[in-house]
């Protein structure tokens, strides 16, 4: 399969703390990679580097054969191809749901408004929120907002989708409705990099799971190996924190 995203020897420091330590990763087209690890292990920073929200100090990130460079002028062009959804949804509070979705395709991609609107409505329908199109973000629940945020990223037709702890801020009963959308996206062959704390979800959605600690990939493998036969002690200990025994 075609390689779509390539990270070579990426390193990053905040002052004296090493956040990413010589990290390399290749993602193939249609692959779903889930990244797990303790808080502060650098998973979010890693995702943010991939679309240039963080400076890349050492190493490189390649999307296809294009280099992601935070200092380059056409970074916004690269970003059109990498969708990202954040923990805090960050819908634009001054725009309706429909406007939230159509803003970027119209302004950034200069696409035809009618055509974009039609597509937006279709996507909204898919995530079950068509009836909310004229509402404002404040009128939606967290789970609904996050589904809109996913649609807002999808309508840009990204080659890769980055999901940064998208259920971490949600009430437990809303987690499912968001993750179902992501599962459906995985089924249709979207390339995704997902940072999450939901282990059951990771198991269900991933083609490959990566355990990140102290800015390094400690272990990676298929969900079956990863969760059922972890090789390293560190991963074993990490996974144990998610299970309870009496």
């Amino acid at each position: 399969m075609e390689e779509i995203l390539k990270v070579n020897n990426l390193s990053k420091r905040f002052d004296d703390i090493v956040v990413l330590d010589n990290l390399s990763l290749t993602v193939k087209k249609g692959e779903v990679v889930v990244i797990v690890g303790p808080s502060g292990c650098g998973k979010s920073t890693f995702l943010r580097c991939l679309n240039g929200l963080e400076d890349i100090e050492e190493g490189e990130v390649l999307l296809g054969d294009e280099k992601v460079n935070p200092n380059k002028k056409n970074l916004s062009k690269t970003r059109e191809k990498i969708g990202m959804v954040f923990q805090s949804y960050d819908l634009f509070p001054h725009k309706t749901i429909l406007q939230n979705i159509t803003l970027a395709p119209i302004k950034v991609k200069k696409r035809n408004k009618a055509e974009v609107t039609e597509e937006a409505l279709k996507l909204l329908d898919r995530v079950g929120l068509l009836s909310k199109k004229d509402n404002y973000p404040r009128q939606l629940s967290g789970g609904q907002k996050q589904r809109v945020a996913i649609v807002r990223a999808l309508i840009m037709h990204p080659e890769v989708l980055l999901l940064d702890e998208i259920t971490a801020a949600l009430d437990p009963e809303m987690v499912r409705e968001v993750l179902d959308v992501v599962l459906a996206l995985a089924k249709e062959g979207r390339t995704m990099l997902i940072v999450t704390h939901e282990m059951a979800f990771a198991k269900a959605v991933a083609d490959r799971v990566i355990f990140l600690e102290n800015g390094k990939i400690v272990e990676e493998g298929s969900p079956a190996e990863f969760f059922d036969k972890p090789k390293t002690d560190r991963l074993k200990r990490f996974l144990e924190t998610f299970s309870y025994e009496k």
């Binding site: 679309n51 240039g52 929200l53 916004s76 062009k77 970003r79 059109e80 990498i82 969708g83 990202m84 954040f86 805090s88 960050d90 634009f92 509070p93 001054h94 803003l103 970027a104 302004k107 950034v108 991609k109 945020a149 807002r152 990223a153 840009m156």
Partner: peptide, 30 residues
Amino acid sequence: VKLSQTESALALGMKKRQLFTSVILPQAIT
């Protein structure tokens, strides 16, 4: 205006100018 608003607009591929006029400014005025 929250920094995360800027980030999510940038992640959508907006240029600095679009970010300012369509995302930051309307919120700042309000």
